[in-house]
């Protein structure tokens, strides 16, 4: 009713333009994102920004490798059979550790996530070696988060789809894996381990 238009010269802080400006101030967060390379800063760099991972952990993009469920199960069995150690853990063999071949071809790793376990549950990997993880949720959706000293890295896996990611562990250590997508009453039993040697 009694509105500012009745006043000849309202104080600058009580003008509409001023509060609209304040309202849009949150958009300035864009600058901060850009400084971490998380968003494009100009059209020219847009493409690059979208392709190169800005952070150590890369972008959230997960590949779906379109492997059918039965085919995945077969490959995972073959992977575990070929690489099992007597203690039940699995250590993927690294065929050729020298030459360019291994740089361009990461070591294959298959993990099945299902109610309420990972298979294989314990992986022994080498530091600074690229592994191509393929993780499939066999029944309902699952997660497969890896806990490091500070933060954790989260992966979501949809039922019947194999997420594909190339992971390089940079420091030796034991890292728990746990499910971060509710999958039923045994959800908090789902755990595994990656031992980087």
């Amino acid at each position: 009713m009694r509105d500012n238009s009745e006043i000849k010269r309202p104080h600058p802080t009580t003008r509409r333009g001023f509060i609209v400006l304040c309202g849009f101030a949150v958009v300035s967060l864009y600058g901060l994102w850009a400084s971490y390379g998380a968003v494009p800063t100009s059209l020219g760099t847009a493409k690059r920004a979208m392709q190169t991972p800005a952070t150590g952990m890369g972008s959230a993009q997960d590949m779906d490798s379109h492997i059918p469920v039965e085919e995945f199960r077969r490959r995972a069995r073959a992977f575990v059979d070929a690489n099992s150690l007597p203690d039940g853990s699995v250590k993927p063999a690294i065929a050729d550790r020298s030459g360019a071949a291994y740089i361009s071809e990461p070591v294959e790793v298959y993990v099945m996530a299902r109610q309420y376990s990972y298979w294989p549950a314990v992986l022994r990997l080498g530091a600074n070696i690229p592994y191509r993880f393929r993780i499939m949720a066999m029944d309902t959706d699952h997660g497969a988060s890896i806990k490091f000293k500070g933060a954790a890295y989260m992966i979501r896996v949809r039922a019947g789809h194999a997420v594909e990611k190339v992971l390089v562990f940079k420091e030796p250590g034991e890292y728990p894996i746990y499910c971060t997508v509710y999958c039923g009453v045994g959800h908090d039993l789902m755990k595994g381990r990656i031992i980087v040697e």
Partner: peptide, 17 residues
């Protein structure tokens, strides 16, 4: 925190079948 994690992760790259 993300940058402190000793992991590099990238999408599947060229691994299509």
């Amino acid at each position: 925190l993300m940058q402190s994690v000793p992991l590099s992760a990238t999408g599947g790259g060229h691994a299509h079948h």
